[in-house]
Design a binder for these strands. Structure first.
Length: 489
RNA sequence: CGGGGCGUAGCGUAGCCUGGUAUCGCGCCUGCUUUGGGAGCAGGAGGCCGUCGGUUCAAAUCCGGCCGCCCCGACCA
């Protein structure tokens, strides 16, 4: 079976799909728009979860779990929230099936009195619950996160990037002051940025969403935006300052130190399995997946090469020792001893799967006291003395992690362009995409027009970098700073 | 919901125009030889051709309905 994949240049989206499928990250399922996350893909997601979860705990959050099903009436309480999600909600209307001449059918006598919505996000059920948990400023801040699945009935789906059901975490916090809530919102955006850059080796731009792109029910949406290799932007995480919108909708009040009653201030923030898609599209190449060592399920794979059983045994001895050394240093190592696959097959397979380092040990190495070290990201191999190999590998993993980041940021820098006239703007968008730094007059109308004409949207109003005044690229009206336009996933 | 494509063995496919029960590759099984970039040879197993109906002596092939999936677009994290 040929597992070669189509090149990025030939067909970028097919390239992406083939990597996801052939590297064993996920599979299509029997349910339209829903995917199966396979063990290898799930292992990466688990590593992401663990890292993020540790960071959430570090910043004082606790995990909890709220119901999948939400009474329909909850959705009508926050006006813009309903409006944002109504179009994509799955609705549970019955609770029983029955046998009939036509087979199994819905039992019409088992109709729910109030229909239940499968959560597209949990603000409503959570704020309904928080109402009972919060009475005074002493109950605040309330810092809770949940790991959950959500369902959004999208018209068109893409593996990991947009599926009907997806996995995510959603943090929901309550605070005594607006100031505190805003700080929390920014803290979590920063946490996401740190995670993306440190763990995923994926550079991100932190910013605020324009009104058009804001979360339904938020006062402000902060985000991290990353740039994929095809020049399209991917929203990789969002953190919302919800003001008192949900507190008012669900009547969540507290008594402050002065004994006065006030609505609490809220935030919510999330990242999802979409990050898996971001990971694929940030680093991978035409040979397949490329994983940053910190998230790779296997950081090192060892492939033995031998003719006779005697050699095999000797290699096993060497590898057994290596494995112990690696494990003692916290290096995740896989020894692929399968004798029904040739070394060449294994080489190709682990490249496709993005294992950062491959070691091959054969008779020649036994003789010379070396091991062949192959670096997935640069596709380079070299022979390294087996003495001191553990320290060498440990350093190399760090080096790869950094190198991936450097490469990604170099690409982003080269693809981030200041543009001051609309013709050039359209031209660059059409030819290569990327982040376009342009002035904008701050109105939704202008953003809408630009979107209609170019398909680019404002990814964010960046929080960092120079603040330079200018004139809107579309309307010529004054602008306080450049914003980032891009076509987005 | 529009546009395009596809449905034949576990996977990828040929055959369809011009009807006669299915090709090839990978994978799988057995044996021997192999193993430093997806091994070789020999033998073997595996398919009511998405589904329902029609035409015909005969349908993967022609006609009609239905179902499903993928891609592109509108919607969206």
């Amino acid at each position: 079976m040929s597992k070669a994949i189509v090149s990025r240049e030939q067909d970028y989206s097919q390239w992406y799909n083939e990597i996801v499928i052939k590297a064993g990250l996920a599979d299509y399922s029997a349910v339209k728009g829903c995917m199966v996350i396979k063990p290898y893909g799930y292992a990466i997601w688990e590593r992401m979860q663990r890292a993020l979860d540790d960071m959430f705990k570090e910043t004082g959050h606790s995990n909890a779990y709220f119901p999948l099903l939400i009474p329909k009436s909850f959705f009508s309480k926050e006006a813009s929230h309903v409006e944002g999600f109504a179009k994509e909600c799955a609705v549970v209307t019955h609770y029983r099936l029955k046998n009939s001449p036509e087979g199994i059918v819905v039992d019409e006598t088992a109709k729910l009195e109030e229909e239940l919505i499968i959560r597209p996000t949990s603000e409503t059920i959570i704020w309904n619950t928080y109402k009972g948990w919060i009475q005074s400023y002493r109950d605040l801040p309330l810092l809770i996160n949940q790991w959950a699945n959500v369902v959004r009935w999208e018209m068109r789906t893409r593996l990991f990037l947009r599926t009907t059901e997806f996995l995510w975490q959603e943090g929901h916090t309550a605070h005594a002051t607006a100031q505190e809530a805003i700080e929390e919102t920014i803290r979590m955006m920063d946490t996401y940025a740190e995670f993306a850059e440190k763990w995923m080796s994926m550079p991100v731009i932190k910013g605020i969403k324009s009104a058009n792109e804001r979360f339904a029910g938020a006062v402000d949406t902060y985000c991290i935006e990353s740039l994929m290799q095809d020049g399209k932007a991917l929203q990789s995480g969002t953190s919302h300052f919800l003001g008192q919108n949900f507190a008012k909708a669900f009547d969540v009040k507290f008594l402050n130190k002065e004994g006065k009653s006030d609505f609490v201030w809220a935030t919510s923030w999330g990242v999802s399995t979409r990050l898996m898609g971001a990971l694929v599209m940030t680093h991978s190449d035409d040979e397949g997946l490329v994983l940053p060592p910190m998230l790779a399920p296997h950081q090192v794979v060892i492939v033995p090469i031998y003719r006779e059983e005697e050699q095999h045994q000797k290699i096993n001895e060497v590898v057994a020792k290596l494995k112990n050394e690696f494990k003692a240093e916290g290096i995740r190592v896989l020894y692929d001893e399968a004798d029904n696959r040739s070394p060449g097959w294994k080489f190709a397979e682990y490249e496709l799967k993005g294992v950062p380092i491959r070691l091959a040990i054969g008779p020649k190495d036994l003789e010379k006291g070396t091991v062949e070290v192959y670096r997935r990201d640069l596709k380079k191999k070299e022979f390294v003395p087996i003495d001191g190999i553990t320290a060498y590998i440990k350093n190399l993993l760090v080096e790869i992690q950094k190198s991936l980041y450097d490469k990604a940021i170099a690409f982003r820098t080269a693809s981030t362009i200041k543009v001051d006239d609309y013709t050039t703007f359209k031209d660059i968008l059409e030819k290569k995409g990327g982040f376009l730094l342009a002035h904008w007059d701050g109105t939704s109308e202008t953003e809408e027009k630009i979107k209609e004409e170019t398909k680019a949207t404002i990814r964010c109003i960046p929080l960092e970098g120079e603040k330079e005044e200018g004139k809107c690229i579309y309307s010529g009206k004054p602008s306080a700073q450049r914003v980032i336009f891009a076509k987005a996933y």
